[in-house]
Design a protein around this nucleic acid. Structure first.
Length: 919
DNA sequence: GCAAGGTC
């Protein structure tokens, strides 16, 4: 019967030329396939015969290159000054084939005219579905016989025989819901992007001297729903760093040296933020230094190879290992792909299909001079090195993970980056099919005076995948052998101080992770958004691939933040994505989602425009105004207070910030960010010709203040001739009591932000009026006496006749204990029984509402740099054991004679009872 | 001169 059926022409269209070639090759079984040119040089046409469900077909196989059409405004709205940007939320838009795609369109028209069927081989994602409808529109435009019965969609998840033949036997209709979701996304992105970009560019560009831009005439201050949240991640981290308040902490470290080597024991409490508590516990340890081994645990540990490689992981690892930018990585990967050395580099998939012939890929690498031997071992069953790769849980149903497709040994044509990126792909692949590394780990816990310490050692038993994956390491460290119950005297027992550090700037790998997590961009576009921030001068990248915002980037984010909309956060995009998902499932109509989203963003746009003065004000902080009066009356000679002690180049002048509050700031801003903030209730302030007699380096001009009477406490005069040089006690007290006029809004996230002391002073660095040091205000000055900073209320419980209070961290009842140290013998205290908590408080302080601080945010510790804050046991003293015999050493190892107070140096007492200590 | 998404 089939023999009687007349052959029909079938036009097949793939999303890209490579897929057209692959699918055509599979379907034709590489027999009788002919290739000819189309109108576009990149999109070849393949022809062969094929039978679909008994129907003989002449197959014509060609491709597009991604989207065939673009969306833009009607001509009359395209010029920037053609309309009010607000109109762009409802101005008519049209879809059209751009000039560079016209040849592809013509090929489709030529071929579809003589076809009876159209089969769409686009990628199986939303964008692919949308492109399918673009192709349908072009083909139906010239062939009116094409309809739902003759237009089919082939859905395939991999370019392998079985999958392609299966797709061909199960042709379906195209999914309009998927395509609608993309239409909505395109329109929203266009309208939001164009309106905000035109608005902020025209508002700010010509009003400020934006020095970061090389070509100011071409400066575009773009806004995009992906680029701005990406910038937001960078700025937010930058603000976190700026607002970090270093906190000193203390920790006890212990080591033990024997014939077998050294073990370093870490205190299981980690760190204490209360100095007195740390000293007390340290003192108890020193007085009873005998260590008892409480636990010896040995176990086998495995270190697994990474999951198969997808695009984001390739970009992150190339950035981490080679410091290659994601944009450059994709360019190099594309070239390797084009040359046939690696598989398609834009893929979300991180698991191999069971159909993939992994052994064949390894076989191809056996001849490589560097890792060929490893590939041979992998294929040798006796070596036992093979392991089926893990499943990373992502599958875009279109492409396999990135893997080598051919042996590549370099050559003149290829750069170093091509070679090392190929090496990464191969080594990563070989690692994926290798067994994990095996190690034997030993954990030893010891008890000194009731405090627990632990040490661990590791021996690598089998390196396995680490032998080929040179980018990862797994350190081995030996510790001496210990037995349960064994006792010994530690070799060193030190009380060390450290300072909490702010987090690091975001690296490119971090930024990609943030974007991936928040759903900003796709695997194929993330690197574009990052590059755009650099091109737009919103951010810079240093040699370590760390990103910092430029003044322009920070100003824009700060401006929108001030207006109150979270336009720089990922939420807007996430909400939009969730709406689009509803469209793609058919739960919501495209028109409804479009209308709602555009209505909301237009309202937001109008409100932003209403508050544009806030954007302008923030820009004023960072940039000079264009055509500003050259008289510089704001910074006139009479306003200079003193020379800046920080940059020692410019003058510090009295001025008002944008909220109208007074400050003394360096004229070298923004290069120098030194600033002194004045009390909030200042009504008027004038620099006088009077010079302070005591403050140096002089001259420091006195300022005549007038305070709001109701803003200052009773007993203070509303008029005050004050000095900002550090000598003025009244000014200092007023700042402590009333605060300053600086910005108090917390911009940082994370635990440090909750302290309430965080101030983002418009990008300026604060100088304490009390001690003249930077990094804190006088209200946080460590030099001043204050008993309330760590105050916390405690509740007393009576349980079974035992006095307990709840731990501040884990709420575990903490029983009353008695100290047995020389200086505090008999004194009662509470401490958390959990070794993971830092809670410690003297009983007599409970009623005073003081206690230790809970764990604080920090990611790095710092060994003490101040010798007076570091003590340790004497070295080499065999007779040590009692406190009286212990010798203390400085950080540099210099012995300190006898025991002495860390605060005043007095050898007669410890710091916890020092009369000079601030509590 | 604007977005983001395909891909060459």
């Amino acid at each position: 019967m089939s023999g009687a059926r007349r052959q029909i022409n079938v036009l097949n269209v793939a999303e890209k030329p490579s897929v057209a070639r692959s699918v055509a090759t599979i379907l034709s079984r590489n027999q009788g396939m002919r290739m000819r040119e189309g109108r576009s040089p990149y999109n070849k046409i393949f022809e062969f015969e094929y039978t679909i469900q008994g129907q003989p077909c002449h197959m014509i196989f060609t491709s597009v290159t991604g989207h065939l059409m673009e969306l833009d405004f009607d001509d009359r709205f395209r010029k920037w000054h053609s309309c009010d940007p607000a109109q762009l939320f409802h101005a008519p838009v049209c879809k059209f084939v751009p000039e560079d795609k016209k040849n592809i369109k013509r090929t489709l028209e030529d071929e579809s005219r003589r076809c009876q069927w159209l089969i769409l081989w686009l990628d199986c994602d939303r964008e692919g579905e949308n492109i399918a409808f673009e192709v349908i529109e072009v083909c139906k435009g010239v062939n009116h016989h094409l309809d739902t019965r003759s237009i089919k969609r082939a859905r395939f998840s991999a370019l392998i025989d079985r999958e392609i033949h299966r797709a061909m036997q199960n042709l379906e209709g195209p999914n309009k819901h998927f395509a609608d979701a993309v239409d909505a996304r395109q329109e929203i992105d266009l309208r939001i992007g164009a309106s905000f970009t035109r608005f902020q560019t025209m508002l700010l560009k010509d009003k400020f001297v934006i020095d970061s831009a090389a070509e100011e005439r071409n400066l575009v201050l773009s806004y995009g729903p992906c680029q701005f949240p990406t910038l937001g991640f960078i700025v937010e981290r930058y603000w976190e760093i700026q607002s970090h308040e270093p906190e000193e902490f203390w920790t006890i470290n212990c080591s033990h040296k024997s014939d077998e080597g050294i073990a370093t024991f870490n205190w299981m409490r980690g760190r204490l933020f209360d100095y007195t508590s740390a000293v007390i516990i340290y003192e108890m340890c020193v007085q009873e230094p005998n260590a008892t081994v409480r636990k010896v645990q040995q176990q086998e540990k495995l270190k697994y190879p990474p999951y198969p490689l997808n695009t984001i992981e390739l970009e992150k690892r190339a950035s981490r290992y080679f410091r290659m930018s994601s944009e450059h990585t994709m360019k190099v990967a594309e070239e390797l792909y084009q040359a046939g050395f690696i598989s398609y580099p834009r893929t979300e998939t991180d698991s191999f299909s069971s159909e993939t012939d992994l052994q064949r890929i390894v076989q191809e690498q056996q001849g490589h001079p560097t890792w060929g031997l490893y590939a041979q071992q992998l294929l040798d069953p006796d070596a036992g090195l093979w392991r089926n790769p893990g499943n990373g849980g992502h599958d875009d149903k279109a492409h396999p993970p990135i893997h080598p497709t051919n042996l590549f040994t370099g050559g003149d044509r290829w750069s170093n980056d091509h070679c090392r990126l190929y090496e990464l792909v191969v080594r990563h692949f070989l690692a994926c099919v290798s067994k994990p590394a095996v190690g034997a780990e030993t954990i030893v816990e010891i008890d000194i005076a009731g405090e627990l310490f632990s040490a661990s050692g590791r021996v690598i038993l089998a390196r396995n995948y680490l032998d080929v994956y040179r980018f990862e390491s797994w350190g081995g460290s030996m510790i001496p052998t210990y037995e349960f119950g064994q006792q010994f005297i530690p070799t060193t027992l030190t009380l060390d101080s450290g300072v909490t550090r702010p987090p690091s700037l975001l690296t490119e790998a971090d930024l990609l992770s943030c974007m991936d997590k928040a759903g900003i961009g796709t695997d194929a576009t993330m690197h574009d958004h990052i590059k755009k921030l650099l091109d737009r001068c919103y951010a810079t990248k240093d040699l370590h691939t760390c990103f910092s915002p430029t003044n322009l980037g920070e100003a824009l984010v700060m401006g929108y933040d001030d207006i109150g909309y979270e336009l720089w956060k990922p939420n807007l995009r996430s909400k939009m994505e969730s709406d689009l998902r509803e469209v793609s499932y058919g739960y919501k109509g495209k028109e409804v989602v479009l209308a709602t989203c555009l209505e909301e963003t237009k309202a937001c746009f109008l409100d932003v425009r209403l508050n544009k003065v806030k954007l302008m004000e923030v820009m004023t902080i960072f940039f000079e105004r264009v055509n500003r009066s050259t008289g510089d009356d704001q910074h006139g000679a009479g306003e200079v207070v003193r020379q800046c002690g920080q940059c020692q180049e410019s003058d510090m002048v009295l001025k008002r910030n944008r909220d109208g509050n007074f400050m003394v700031g360096c004229l070298g801003y923004p290069q120098c960010r030194n600033a002194i903030w004045l009390p909030g209730p200042v009504l008027e302030a004038t620099v006088t010709t009077n010079i302070c007699n005591s403050c140096t380096p002089g001259p420091v001009h006195l300022i005549q203040f007038k305070f709001r009477q109701l803003g200052i406490p009773p007993g203070f005069s509303a008029n005050h001739l004050g000095c900002i040089g550090g000598c003025d006690e009244i000014l200092r007290q007023l700042i402590e009591i009333c605060g300053t006029g600086s910005r108090t809004q917390v911009r940082a996230r994370g635990p440090t932000a909750s302290s309430g002391n965080v101030r983002q002073n418009n990008g300026r660095e604060v100088t304490c009026i009390y001690c003249q040091q930077t990094g804190h205000t006088s209200s946080d000055c460590p030099s001043k006496v204050s008993g309330s900073r760590n105050a916390r209320s405690r509740v007393m419980n009576q349980e079974n006749g035992e006095t307990t209070i709840p731990c501040s961290s884990c709420r575990t009842p903490c029983a009353l204990r008695t100290a047995n140290t020389a200086n505090n013998r008999g004194r009662k205290f509470y401490s958390c029984p959990s070794q993971e908590c830092n809670f410690f408080v003297w009983e007599d302080n409970v009623n005073n509402n003081s206690g230790t601080r809970g764990p604080s945010y920090a990611n790095t510790s710092n060994s003490a740099s101040n010798p007076s804050r570091r003590v340790g046991r004497g070295r080499g003293g065999r007779s040590e054991g009692r406190a009286a015999d212990v010798t203390f050493v400085s950080a540099t190892g210099e012995p300190l004679s006898g025991r002495r107070c860390f605060v005043c140096g007095d050898p007669s007492h410890f710091a916890n009872v020092c009369p000079n200590r601030v509590t």
